[in-house]
Design a protein around this nucleic acid. Structure first.
Lengths: 137, 137
DNA sequence: CCGTATCCAAGCCGATACTG
DNA sequence: CAGTATCGGCTTGGATACGG
């Protein structure tokens, strides 16, 4: 695994190299997309839509994403739509109907987040231990 | 680990199932740790320390993490230390010296973030295209 | 050198009320 | 049903000044 004595031996050096090849604008967008992962509601909202594997109405989403306000959900959905992670389709009916669905890009994003999330969940005990040790310091 | 007729054929269902097995406290901590990933300075700071592959002083870190204020860097470092991602060692000298270094847990975290980050960076053009299409809607 | 303390501006987010 | 408008509390983070 380790080849050089100097560089970090995991993929981070590779990433740094790749990021250096990006323009400032692209780099900023990369950070912005990663940030979206830990926006308060974005990831949860995406996972809810993805789970159904079919278009979902606004109110159904709001039921599943417990605790989200109408305002925050609207903002979250608009952001996800803008970034091409979900689609938003308005039906000209009375009463109004709006359906949200995952895009391939959004599904890919979830797929790429999954391993990280799983690792964190599995490591949760180690984090708790670390905090306990910190308190005792 | 059961197979249902439901879709989501990627790892998300698996994650959901795993997370359901966590206590509320553990689940909250998981979200908190993922959130830390996209805190404004945490990830950048970790990558800077990891890159050197040896303990780093406060001021050296601050040079590398461009734009961070003393206050924010201090807060970031304290958080990372508390979560067991880095260590903080104070030397009783004049002038004072404090050195920060990655822990195994911190390095593992970076390793697990790397694939996601790389995917996002490589997909940056698709995100740009999505935003352009959104503007034209 | 490595912080802490204080002030302040900006933004997030929930609650509530209202609209097509 | 699916929003928009508005308000107000809370947190975040930069600037500055000061302390060990």
């Amino acid at each position: 695994m380790k080849k050089t004595g100097k560089k970090s031996d995991f993929g981070w050096a590779q990433i740094k190299e790749f990021c250096d090849s990006l323009t400032d604008e692209e780099d900023a967008l990369t950070r912005e997309m990663v940030t979206c992962i830990s926006d308060k509601w974005s990831l949860w909202t995406m996972s809810v839509i993805a789970e159904q594997a079919r278009p979902m109405r606004f109110s159904r989403i709001m039921e599943q994403v417990e605790g989200v306000s109408q305002k925050s959900l609207t903002k979250t959905l608009r952001g996800l739509e803008r970034d091409g992670l979900i689609t938003r389709k308005v039906f000209a009916e009375v009463p109004p109907r709006v359906e949200y669905a995952m895009t391939p890009l959004g599904s890919e994003m979830l797929e790429n987040i999954a391993p990280l999330w799983l690792w964190v969940a599995k490591s949760v005990q180690r984090f708790q231990d670390a905090r306990a040790a910190y308190s005792d310091r």
